[in-house]
Amino acid sequence: MKIAFIINDHATEKPNFTTPALGFSAYKREHEVYFIGVGELAYASDGHLSARCKTISGKNFKTQETYFKAVQKEEFTRITSKELDVLFLRNDPSDEINEREWAQNAAFIFGEIATRDNVIVLNHPSSLAGAVNKMYFQHFPEILRPKTIISRDHAEIKEFFAAQKNKMILKPLQGSGGTNVFMMDKKNEHNLTQTIDAICRDGFVIAQEYLPEAKNGDTRLFLMNGEPLKTPDGKYAIMQRVNASGDIRSNIHAGGRPQKVKMNDTILALAEIVRPKLVQDGMFLVGIDIVGDKLMEINVFSPGGLNVMGQMYDADFATEVIKSIEKKVHYNNVYEDYLFNSRLATL
């Protein structure tokens, strides 16, 4: 199959990230793999998606790092949606905030164009467009979520703070990777107005119940086709992300430390509650972040850590993802135009 991955930019994509891991797994399975930066997308006069891309073929690589470094050194070539089987949207819109605002929605818009050529687009582009901020999380059942308000009103946020016994989490509605996440309590209450103002500069503020279990970090679990991702021998794509000393954020890019963690009934029950909406929305590969018996976040754009988990458990999770995509391509070829992209995405 011919599979293209959309990333934010070739200059910022690190060889040890999850997307290069997925690309390397596809490459090892003798597929044609392409990487496209958001800024390299285009709409051709014949009505098809067109893109400048980087690809490599005919060489053997021992690791994903050597593979992707070689890809990055290649000259740009061009590919169109008429040639592709799969377009995997793995760019993170939140990385473009205040930098390249035009790039936040570009992948969804061009992804929709690709579906006209019967290209399988993952995750489903129109659903991603509706999930471009953390409000998407609020559409899941309330029993999953910590108590939350979303507002720009200082008085409302301060009332919530008092109702939470002067302890809560503040973060922006848009963003990821632990950026601008603050824990407010009696010790820093004098900074509450200033903190709300700082977050309000970029939009709405999420004020969220503080969960005591958060001091131990959170648990990242990958879901594929709505189900916990695991290898045939039963190893789950799951890890505990332990906060760096003195930091409430457990994101790996924010200094969090990954650790092994065992699957349990509480996590499986949470995943099962999340599953129906993810399947309905065509969310093929997502990462859910769990604290205690609550979900803190659902990352539907470019969840990371799959390669870290693979090394931690000596498991090839990336290949399981590619195998699932291969089945989707087979279904798409057999049924031709009879299956909607949103359904194919989670078959």
Results as ranks from 00 to 15, higher is better:
Ile267Tyr: 06
Met283Phe: 11
Glu99His: 13
Phe182Pro: 02
Tyr34Gln: 06
Cys53Tyr: 05
Gln138Lys: 13
Lys294Tyr: 04
Asp293Cys: 10
Glu30Asn: 15
Val300Ile: 11
Ser245Asp: 08
Ile252Leu: 12
Ser342Tyr: 05
His154Lys: 14
Arg90Thr: 05
Asn8Asp: 15
Pro15Ala: 09
Gly256Ala: 02
Lys277Val: 11
Met239Thr: 02
Gln194Ile: 14
Ala129Gln: 06
Ala44Gly: 15
Thr77Ala: 15
Lys73Asn: 12
Leu278Pro: 11
Asp314Ile: 07
Gly39Met: 04
Ile150Arg: 01
Ala214Arg: 07
Gly177Tyr: 01
Ile120Ser: 01
Phe61Gly: 04
Asn188His: 11
Arg275Ile: 09
Gly234Ile: 04
Asp265Lys: 15
Pro228Ile: 03
Ala271Asn: 09
Glu336Ala: 14
Phe284Trp: 04
Asn8His: 10
His124Phe: 01
Phe24Glu: 03
Leu170Phe: 11
Leu49Val: 10
Leu223Gly: 04
Val242Phe: 01
Gly310Phe: 00
Lys14Trp: 08
Asn98Ile: 10
Arg241His: 03
Ser342Phe: 06
Pro93Ile: 11
Gln174Pro: 00
Ile238Glu: 00
Leu223Tyr: 04
Ala11Ile: 15
Leu211Trp: 04
Met224Gly: 03
Leu229Ile: 05
Phe24Arg: 00
Pro93Lys: 13
Ser176Glu: 04
Gln208Ser: 14
Arg343Cys: 06
Asp314Arg: 06
Asp153Asn: 15
Pro232Met: 11
Pro258Cys: 05
Lys54Val: 04
Gln164Val: 03
Val279Ser: 08
Glu336Asp: 15
Asp289Glu: 11
Ile6Ala: 06
Lys262Gly: 12
Leu347Asn: 08
His31Thr: 06
His330Lys: 11
Pro146Leu: 06
Asp293Pro: 15
Phe76Cys: 14
Lys158Arg: 14
Asn60His: 12
Thr66Gly: 12
Phe17Arg: 05
Asn180Ala: 13
Val308Gly: 02
Met309Val: 03
Lys328Cys: 09
Gln240Asp: 08
Glu142Phe: 08
Asn188Tyr: 07
Ala318His: 01
Gln194Val: 15
Gly282Gln: 00
Gln240Thr: 08
Ile298Cys: 10
Gly23Gln: 03
Met296Thr: 12
Asn333Trp: 03
Asn188Cys: 13
Ile113Gln: 02
Lys328Asp: 03
Arg100Pro: 05
Val132Asn: 13
Asp314Leu: 10
Leu268Asn: 13
His10Gln: 12
Met224Ser: 10
Glu30Val: 13
Ile273Asn: 12
Lys54Trp: 03
Lys235Cys: 07
Met263Asn: 05
Ser342Thr: 10
Leu285Ser: 03
Ile273Phe: 09
Leu89Ala: 03
Ser245Trp: 02
Leu144Gln: 07
Asn180Ser: 15
Arg52Tyr: 13
Ile109Ser: 11
Gly130Glu: 04
Ile36Phe: 01
Gly178Thr: 01
Thr319Leu: 11
Asn216Met: 10
Leu122Glu: 00
Gln280Val: 05
